[in-house]
Simulated scan of single mutants.
Amino acid sequence: MNLLFYILAVAIGVVTGGITSLIGASGVMIIVPILSMFFKVSVHTAIGTSLFVDVIASLTVAYSYYKNGNIELKSGIWIALTSIIGAQLGASFASKMGEGNLSSSFGIVLVIAGLSMIRKSYKEKNAPSDTVSGFIHFKAEWQKILAALIIGLGIGILSGIFGAGGGVMILLALIILMSFPLHKAIGTSTLIMAITALSSTIGYAVRGNIDILLGILLSAGAVIGGILGSRFANKINEKTLQRTVGICFTAMGIVMTAIAIIK
């Protein structure tokens, strides 16, 4: 291993942390293919290492959002609890479904969500900048908790099926179903992702499927990227962040759909 190896690993981590801080997406989507193709790491080790980085990056980003008051702890914890259970169910479903159909379906969902957010960012100019409308409104605390548990289970199942889509699924659910403002949705989704990623990381670590050196290098970069990205995201207004997230979602969706079609 030479100096270039270390620099490249840290640089990949910086990009991963930055993306997590802006759109709450899992580093699995970036790290796994890069480790597999360029670092010649086995797929299982690549996934385990990326999950390890996910925990560090997500906790860094979540803490930054928490300092800015952009985390809903109550709903986040309830969602995280059932999402862990749902992920196990989703993983068992995924083995019975075609991978190409899953990837293209998720890609299309991302494109639609991304375009909707871009469109919304240009509308309602007179509306308050700190709100994102949803269609569920809660009259009592128990209703909110029950909804969080059900949504967490659903997110877990979908995350288990789609794999790397966990963070994005959480973010979409918080925005669309629970009426979270975008800043708070990103902060809360990264906290939930850290908890669910930790659960999976432990499983991979027990089986020896984590490259500790790579994980540390990637995590160091992810912390830097997460801190810088979070500072930027927490300072910009809701409309600009909506536009940024929308563009990222659309691009990710197009890439995922294209790869599924080519395969």
Rank of each mutant, 00 (worst) to 15 (best):
residue 4 L to W: 15
residue 7 I to V: 14
residue 7 I to L: 14
residue 8 L to Y: 11
residue 13 G to T: 06
residue 15 V to E: 10
residue 17 G to V: 00
residue 22 L to H: 11
residue 22 L to N: 05
residue 31 I to E: 08
residue 36 S to Y: 15
residue 38 F to D: 05
residue 40 K to H: 15
residue 41 V to H: 03
residue 45 T to F: 09
residue 46 A to I: 06
residue 46 A to S: 06
residue 49 T to G: 09
residue 50 S to L: 11
residue 51 L to F: 09
residue 53 V to W: 02
residue 56 I to V: 13
residue 64 S to I: 09
residue 68 N to K: 15
residue 71 I to V: 10
residue 76 G to D: 02
residue 88 Q to W: 09
residue 90 G to L: 00
residue 93 F to P: 01
residue 97 M to H: 08
residue 97 M to Y: 04
residue 109 V to C: 06
residue 113 A to W: 01
residue 113 A to T: 11
residue 116 S to I: 09
residue 117 M to S: 11
residue 124 E to V: 13
residue 124 E to T: 12
residue 142 W to Q: 13
residue 145 I to W: 02
residue 146 L to Q: 06
residue 149 L to C: 08
residue 150 I to Q: 04
residue 150 I to F: 00
residue 154 G to R: 06
residue 158 L to A: 10
residue 159 S to Y: 00
residue 160 G to H: 09
residue 161 I to G: 00
residue 162 F to K: 06
residue 179 S to C: 11
residue 181 P to R: 01
residue 190 T to E: 00
residue 193 M to C: 08
residue 197 A to W: 02
residue 203 G to Q: 13
residue 204 Y to T: 06
residue 211 D to Y: 09
residue 214 L to Q: 03
residue 221 G to A: 09
residue 223 V to E: 02
residue 225 G to Q: 04
residue 229 G to L: 03
residue 232 F to C: 06
residue 250 T to Q: 09
residue 257 T to E: 05
